[in-house]
Design a protein around this nucleic acid. Structure first.
Lengths: 327, 327
DNA sequence: CTGAAAGCGCTAACAC
DNA sequence: GTGTTAGCGCTTTCAG
């Protein structure tokens, strides 16, 4: 392992000077700088981050803890955070919290003690209190897709209820009366909000859901729920799926039942941009701009003065609802 | 930030002793150990990894650099590596190499300079030479799904050619003569091997492919290729898809054409266990045991004496090929 | 079993 | 501009 010291020796300067050129400090004579640069090259020296972190208390890296590594949603999330971090010259380290508060906390602690300059949290198990506690310990972090009272200025949020209402409303507007919903796991906050939005829209239109089944946000549960819905005594004319993956499952089930989308069954889903545009028919959706949010969270972390931005749901019209529609 | 020193002061012992109990050294009197433990709890002390890494030259963490964060394949990969790492009491840090040698190298360097005890590499852009060079620098790493001559003992590999042959052979055995293939991006090594296997099996059976289209391993390209194949003057009776994602796309296209699987079109695909089992019909596949390989690579990294294991392709019979078969 | 002491490789005042 | 000098928080001999 070649160290600062070695470089200094070879260049015939002090360690401080080497440190200066490595860190881009301007107070170095070009000539000296060159000597040092050459020595660095010759020795192919790379600074030791651990030593650096220890001495300076920062590391030029950002941390990300996600709920999971699995699924297109998280892939996109990680990808965008990394891209944004790199555009600010920071490296990204990601780790998965899994679905336990203990694990999430462990992951966070590790990231912090690695002296990450900041951490982006997409966590579901840690309680609001724990998060506020964390904020107390003067740690720098932002929360992605989560609203914690008292921590509003570090929360990047999205109005899931409204998004869900809008999606449902599309179906209603298209004239559908027999509407079903495939929601996410009931214990998750975001699932609850989406379901709530659906129910609210239905109630406002004075409609009873034909069915309301709970999936687990994956292909199979989407298939199963849709299949069950399609065997129901009252056949729904439209289905709202609370994520893309389940919508693909539903689509498969619908085709299996020899029904057509959108002629026989209309479909709308939550969409984080991974799949809904790419299946046939392309799925009409409410866009959940997780990638933009991830990007924004990263910026917010780097520069806390970033102006607040509201992320609004938006309907993307594709081909899974007939415009004249309904029955 | 509470340090070793604080704990030592509170417990009335030396820093060395605290270090011992923190690190589970046995040479500490139970009484002393208790005092220290209590002080640690009271101060809720957590060691500083940077300092630890600097002093000890290791960090109890493993690194993983993947080609990408996206897609079920990588999600599963990351997930399994993390699980295995944690079962050995190690934390995992993952970062994405993207598709550039420069980025891959950067990611690797960062991980190493963080003093990761070892790094698992799923890299595609770095050349064999660069990898051998890296090995020279006494760094500890293993290669996942890649064979680099000279580095065999750190390579966890899979016989893609054979797997592909076996998959194709299933179709042939079922009596199919009009077989098409949807392969992956031509520039990737693994795609090439899979295509090669397909071609070899066809040739051995004295069969001409009805079509052989190149996708990019995603849903949409699977759909597009299949769609194109189904408009071909000679309709294939069977399609082999080189990954799961494209197979789902193909399935969607087939249903769109009002054809049935397996009665009208047989389907077989590469399968890393993410989706093939969960669609309807469940897809018959060659299993690519990436999760087992990831697990094994992690073990190999931790304990280089782990006995070598061959990962063999295996056909999983599900419902997308008719047994009596034919066309 | 426990403590003292010497670093790990680097940064950050502070002199010169 | 550049060198000197303290540490950053921890591990690790080496005594005792």
């Amino acid at each position: 392992m070649v160290t600062l010291e070695d470089v200094a020796a070879l260049a015939g300067v002090s360690r401080a000077t080497v440190s200066r050129v490595v860190n881009g400090d301007n107070n170095v004579r070009p000539l000296t700088r060159n000597k040092v640069a050459q020595a660095i090259a010759e020795l192919s020296y790379t600074p030791n981050p651990a030593a650096r972190a220890l001495a300076s208390k920062h590391s030029n890296t950002l941390g990300l803890v996600t709920t999971s590594y699995r699924g297109g949603f998280f892939g996109a999330l990680m990808d965008f955070v990394q891209t944004e971090a790199e555009s600010h010259g920071k490296q990204l380290l990601v780790t998965q919290g899994r679905n336990s508060a203990e694990n999430e906390l462990l992951a966070i602690q590790r990231l912090f003690s690695l002296r990450c300059d900041g951490v982006i949290l997409h966590v579901r198990s840690l309680s609001d209190d724990q998060l506020r506690q964390l904020a107390t310990e003067q740690r720098r972090f932002v929360l992605l897709d989560r609203l914690v009272p008292g921590l509003e200025d570090r929360c990047v949020t999205f109005d899931h209820i409204r998004a869900s209402q809008m999606a449902t409303q599309q179906l209603i507007n298209a004239g559908h009366q027999r509407i079903a919903c495939i929601s996410g796991p009931a214990q998750r906050a975001s699932s609850q909000l989406r379901l709530q939005g659906f129910l609210a829209a239905m109630q406002a239109a004075n409609l009873q859901p034909v069915g309301c089944l709970e999936g687990v946000y994956d292909l199979e549960s989407g298939y199963q729920c849709a299949d069950q819905l399609l065997r129901h005594e009252i056949l729904p004319s439209a289905i709202y799926c609370c994520n893309e993956e389940m919508a693909i499952g539903a689509l498969l089930a619908i085709k299996e039942h020899h029904l057509r989308v959108p002629q026989d069954i209309a479909l709308i889903c939550y969409d984080s941009g991974e799949r809904a545009p790419f299946v046939r028919p392309a799925l009409t959706s409410v866009h959940f701009p997780i990638t933009e949010m991830a990007q924004y969270a990263t910026r917010l972390l780097i520069n806390p003065l970033t102006p607040v931005e509201q992320f609004e749901p938006e309907i993307i019209h594709r081909d899974s609802i007939t415009v004249a529609g309904g029955n």
